[in-house]
Amino acid sequence: MSEGLIKNIKDLSVEHNLAPGTSMCAGCGALETVKLFCDILGKNTVFVNAAGCMTLLAIYPFTPFSGSWLYTAMASASAGAQGIRDALDILIKKGRLSASEDLKVIVLTGDGSAYGMGLSATSAAIDRDLDFYYLCYDNEGYGNTGHQDSAATPYGARTATSASGAGFTGRKKDLFSIWAAHKPAYLATIIAAEPLDLAHKVEKAMTIKGPKMFITLAPCPTGWHYEPHQTVSIGKLAVKTGIWPLKEFKDGTVTHTKVLKERVPVEEYLKLQGRFEHLFVPEKNPALINRIQTTVDQYWKDV
């Protein structure tokens, strides 16, 4: 499927544009994606950030980025990206900046901003056909404040604000469809546990002008309550169970980039995470597990 340079895992860069020394938690699934993003997009980047875990990537005077960074506010990173993109275009047009100095503008926010407070600014940026990348690291809760319910929290997960009973009783918002309804130039779901799929999508996006939207599921040892070393295994299971469908939207069509003949039961994914422990302990709760399984089955039936 790839028209880019990355054909297999060996083609991924072993030298990284994102420096070590960040204060992200050990085993951070979001950081894995950011690292891959930086490697594929190259050094000529400016990341525009909204309040979230990743705000702490760059703490004065330490930045891991070989490119540039601007923290704006939780609601308006996409507007900040618009301001920078506009400014770069103006400077190049007026001959005050060489085109060779141009940068890719990337919005980096968590699900708290992307699914909620920042949705309006992002919607408007897509409306304006802003030439930018948007990377939402979706760890399914307000991670930076201790993992409370966000609009991305899945049904049944326990969070700091759904700490008892059946866990979160709402549904995970379908941000992919919301963004797709805006008809951005490119839109995809990704996960760091599937780096080739991710690389192919980012490479494809690099050939496209306009809004290039990405949602990465970001397994979170701290908020999901599992051991840091399980981040990749859990990420792979999210895909194998069909809970995190890998797909893309281009030219009005949604295409699934990984369709499995047989999906692993969701139980295998759920049971590794403390946030779903109440589905298994003190005794198994088949009703709740089935409900989650049925939602996933229904999704894939419609694919």
Partner: peptide
């Protein structure tokens, strides 16, 4: 102003101490 005028300075932050 809290600005960093160069890249990749986080290498000075030795997070190996967390281990």
């Amino acid at each position: 102003t809290p600005a960093i005028r160069t890249g990749s300075t986080s290498v000075k932050n030795q997070t190996g101490s967390w281990r």
